[in-house]
């Protein structure tokens, strides 16, 4: 079974101007922080369900940049409708990675719907996102990287990961204004207005 920290690190290794990376509340934001600080990261620490819409809005505003959303299964399940909006807006620069451990890891490991009968890849397909995959093993990571960073989007991938509990790793600031101003300045490459 895939280990989330090594996976995120491998996907972002030798990263250049692209991608801009958005991560969802909780473990995904800790994974992104553990992979190394970068001003082109923005990690949610609240507003569950909003990382997907935020990534879509960013992709629509920055159509020449790759946007990667790294989100947990709980996050995505809270706002499944956005996958329909993504499919219909069809931004070629947006990639979504679901880190699917089948549990609410931050709150005690209660099972999510993906531990039961729900398949996020099929949900994405049903919403109209045509380029999708599910990976479960390390030898699939290179192909996943290519899909998420290079293939014309929107793309949606599920990585089935170990529901391991890991030490927390924090982004440089929990203050939303500090984090947002830093990210926006990096995106726009000038002072935020």
């Amino acid at each position: 079974m895939l280990r989330r920290r090594a996976l995120v690190e491998a996907l972002l290794e030798n990263r250049s101007e692209n991608p801009l990376v958005i991560s969802s509340l909780g473990s995904s934001t800790w994974d992104l922080a553990a992979a190394g600080d970068n001003p082109r990261n923005f990690g949610f620490i609240g507003a569950m369900g909003q990382a997907g819409p935020f990534a879509l809005g960013l992709a629509l505003a920055q159509s020449s940049r790759r946007v990667l959303l790294v989100a947990g299964d709980g996050e995505l399940l809270m706002s499944l409708g956005v996958l329909a909006t993504v499919a219909n807006q069809a931004p070629a620069n947006l990639a979504i990675l679901a880190l699917d451990n089948e549990v609410y890891g931050e709150t005690g490991g209660q099972p999510t719907a993906t531990a039961g009968r729900t398949d996020l890849e099929l949900v994405a397909q049903g919403c109209g996102i045509e380029t999708t995959c599910t990976i479960r093993a390390e030898d699939e990571i290179e192909a996943l990287r290519s899909l998420l960073l290079e293939t014309g989007g929107p793309v949606f991938a599920v990585a089935k990961i170990d529901p391991e509990e890991l030490p927390l790793a924090f982004p440089p600031s929990f203050d939303g204004v500090t984090a947002m101003n830093r990210f926006r300045e990096a995106v726009l490459e000038r002072g935020a207005s």
Partner: peptide, 23 residues
């Protein structure tokens, strides 16, 4: 550009992301 949403709260995140990207 007009974006039809499935629910209103999607619009909050979407417009915040767009602002972060300069729109």
């Amino acid at each position: 550009d007009v974006v039809g949403l499935t629910t209103e709260e999607e619009g909050v995140g979407l417009l915040c992301g767009a602002w972060a990207g300069g729109r």
